[in-house]
Every structure is written in C-alpha cells, then in structure tokens.
Amino acid sequence: MKKHSYLSIVVVLLSFIGLSVLAQATAKNDLQLSVSYFNSNNKIQYLVAHTKCKIDGKFQLVPNVEISFYISNDSSATNLLGKATTNEKGEAVLMIPPAAKSEWVKSSKQNFEVVSKASALYDETKANTPVSKAKLKIETSDDKKITVTVLEQKDTAWTIVKGVELKVAIKRLDGDLNVNETQTFTTDSTGTISAEFKRDSLPGDLNGNLTLIAKVEDNDTYGNLTVEKVVPWGSKIQYSTGFDRRTLFARRGHSPIWLELLAYSIILAVWIILIHLLGQIKKIKKLGEGVIVEMKH
C-alpha cells in the first residue's frame, strides 16, 4: 500500500514537470516596445518605434513586427496615424502624415502611442511618449560663431527654454563631427548656446560649404530635435583623378614616359637592324643579277 502511495506521488510529480515543460514551450516572449519623436530640421516630424526581446539572457532586436502609431493615448481607429513594420534593426519609422494636422495643431503638447500587433511569438504590447512641441534656431556670424536657441511652443507662442542639453556639430559622411572640443552645450537663461567653430581647413564640397547641425537627443520633454545650416567655412575640394596619370597600372596609351622611351628605342633599334638586313638581301640580289660565275662546288 505504501509502495502504491510513493508511486502515485512520483506519477503526479512527473506529470507536473511535463506540463511545466509544455507550458514553457508554448510561452510567448516579452516584447519590449518604445517610441521616440523626431523633429528633423524643423520641417519633418516622424516617429520611430523600437522593438527588442530578451532571449537566452540577451537582448535581441525584433524584426517583422507590425506597429500601429496613434496620436494621443486613445488607440482608436480615428487617432491612427499609420502602420509600419520593424526592420532588421527592430525599428519601424512613420512620418506624421498631413492628415493628422487637425489633431496635431490642437495642442502644444502631444502624446504618441504605439501598439504592436499580437502574433504567435509576442503578445500585443503598448508604449507611449509625451512630447512638448519645440524647435531649434541656428544662427552664425562671420567670425565663425554659432548660436543655437531652443524654443518651446506654449499655446501659440514660441518661448525660450533654458537648461536643455544639445550638441553642435558638422555633418560628415560617416557621422557628425563636433565643431570644437566641447561635446555638449546647455542653454543659458536666454535659451541659447554659443559655440566657436574650430575646424579650419575641413574639406567641404566643391564650393567649400559645410553643413552645421545642432541636435537635442532623447530629451524627455521634447524628444529629438535637429536643425541644419549650410556655411562656407570648409576648404574647397579639388577633385583629382589618377585616371590620366602615366603609371604602370594605367590604361593603354598612358604608360610612363621612361617605359615608352626604353621600349620603343629597343624595338626601333632591333627592327632597324632587321630592316637593314632585309635591305642587304636586296643588295645581294642586285649584285647577283647578270653575274655568270662558274660555281666552285
């Protein structure tokens, strides 16, 4: 009887472990969703949703997740801005469409919500970000001083904001280069920062133009703001090409002069000798014409 009791306990335990394993096998992963607001050069406003998931103790980016973007906290169909699917970086980008203008202008503060679509792997997940409308103003002077002002919309007026951290840089091909040694600036009581341009002789475009960029990054109140300005502070690029240079690796007709001189003089010298010898055959022929000689052999 006692033996049967032990057996029953073992069967129950095994059944419990088996169910747990089954339950684990079918459990969905927790999708972490976030959304950021961007105001690019005070012209283009867009949202970027980020998805990631912890698998085997490591965060991994999650592609191919359909994300719905809403203006305001109410994720109803009327507030839907649009949908986008995350790429291999786990990012889904949505430009705020002109159709949302009436909702957009209603208030100087907005809230954006993103909702990921439920799937076999992930449950529906939501995230939101509140945003106060703001913009940057950039000005430059002839002595290469840069002034950036942060302005926040309050009702219908734009007011200066102090204590905002921002970067001032020059746009380059693979990233932004700070205008001087200072990494970040913070706006003063006038809502502005001043930076001195100390990157002399930096190659610009054909006219020596550089693009300055001021940016506020991941600000809890304003999101991501940028503003750009083109300034003629770079050095003009002189495009030089080695295509026409005379090198050993150049195209036909562009061999180095020394090689041409050497090669052609050798070829000429040898072939002049050969042509001379052909002339000698002609001479021998001429000498033999009309000569009647008794042969020795």
């Binding site: 000698q280 001479k283 021998i284 000498l287 033999g288 014409e289 000569v291 000689v293 042969m295 020795k296």
Partner: peptide, 12 residues
Amino acid sequence: FWKNTPEQEKIS
C-alpha cells in the same frame, strides 16, 4: 641570285 661573289659572301 646567289653567285658566290666575294661581295655577296662579305655581305652575307
């Protein structure tokens, strides 16, 4: 045209 003349031999 070869006649074995001394001139021809010399040239050759």
